[in-house]
Design a protein around this nucleic acid. Structure first.
Lengths: 193, 193
DNA sequence: CTCTAACGGCACGGCACGTGCCGTTGACAA
DNA sequence: TTGTCAACGGCACGTGCCGTGCCGTTAGAG
């Protein structure tokens, strides 16, 4: 079996990513070192550098891999209910530990490291945004939204204030807050006669 | 004159901050080192550490000090015109070099360093947000906005999508984009009978 | 004419980086 | 069964920057 080789390698990869998340939660991303990850995992530094080119790339993989499928996105036929469900799920996921602080650090690293920024976009941001816009488009085609309504901007208004709180003002993300955002968005969203 | 002492010290402070911005633009914030700033400024490292406790604090000061007054905020009596003027000024300031990339790096650092996050909030984010909400409140009192309209959320909808583009999707900040955001916001903003 | 604080220059120990080398392990092919 | 080979853990190395001492100098303050 050649599977054993691959399985052993995959196991090590998983173990390294687990240790990375552990250490990041204990000391913070800024003080995280590949040296420490290697030591705690019981692995040579080469084994890490063979898989990831930088601390940022390792951290990105460690944070995103367990959340790869992204947020669940229902289509119940009711666009308001679906948007509400989705934005509350985002608050639950990003607004609290464990993922919240890790995700904040990941976005922070993306500001310094273009490779991390690109990968974060492709693996998490864009798929999520695309699903939101697609759902909005279906609603628009069914006449639940005004036909001139700007779907891309609507998506940005759903996400932007959430990220603004998470990254800029650093106030807690609450369900009450996103509900207020949703309310204002809906005021400009419903079809006009 | 004791002024000479203070003047010399202030001159050195200015020179260090100038060099910091220079080097940050040349090599990026990630590769910026206090050692290099000291060397290029022709200054001992102590002289820097005496003024700032960390690279992050130095960078914050270097970026914000020249932009301390914040964005100009007119009150022409027309709330729509004022919001439009203000958000376009934000695009001009943050959407392009030199400040754009520096500001992105600053927000990134704030995700790893609570002191930087707090100072960024107090010196730039909150004053700006407060001015926006205050302007909205005046408009509301004058009946230009519905009395139940959520002013804090309106501010977040003005800022959030802008930061979302700047930090997350990293698409260029354009006047056309913020104009679309404004249009959607206004749809939920006007008074209802 | 001292006194003193801030200074530039230099050296230091410490840490993490990224990269070599070496001996070992274990799956696979001959 | 034996030989091959890639991945591995362990170790050491040179490098860069950290933050902090010390030392001699400089230029106002008293």
């Amino acid at each position: 079996m050649s599977d054993d080789r691959l399985t052993r390698a995959a196991d090590r990869t998983q173990a390294i990513m687990r240790t990375t998340l552990e250490l990041a939660q204990e000391v913070g991303y800024a003080k995280l070192s590949i040296e420490a990850v290697a030591a705690r995992t019981g692995v040579g530094k080469h084994t890490i550098y063979r898989r990831w080119p930088s601390k940022g790339a390792l951290f990105l993989d460690a944070v995103l891999t367990p959340n790869e499928p992204g947020l669940h996105y229902a289509d119940t036929g009711d666009i308001v209910a679906d948007l509400r469900q989705q934005i509350h799920a985002a608050v639950d996921l990003l607004g609290q530990p464990p993922l919240g602080p890790l995700y904040r650090a990941l976005v922070g690293e993306a500001q310094h490291n273009p490779m991390v920024a690109a990968a974060l976009n492709e693996r998490f941001i864009r798929p999520q945004a695309d699903r939101t816009v697609a759902r909005l488009r279906r609603a628009q085609e069914q006449g639940q939204l005004s036909s001139e309504f700007d779907l891309d901007v609507a998506m940005a208004i759903l996400s932007g204030p959430l990220y603004f709180r998470l990254l800029i003002t650093q106030e807690p993300l609450t369900h009450e807050y996103v509900e207020r955002v949703l309310k204002v968005l809906l005021a400009g969203m419903t079809p006009r006669p």
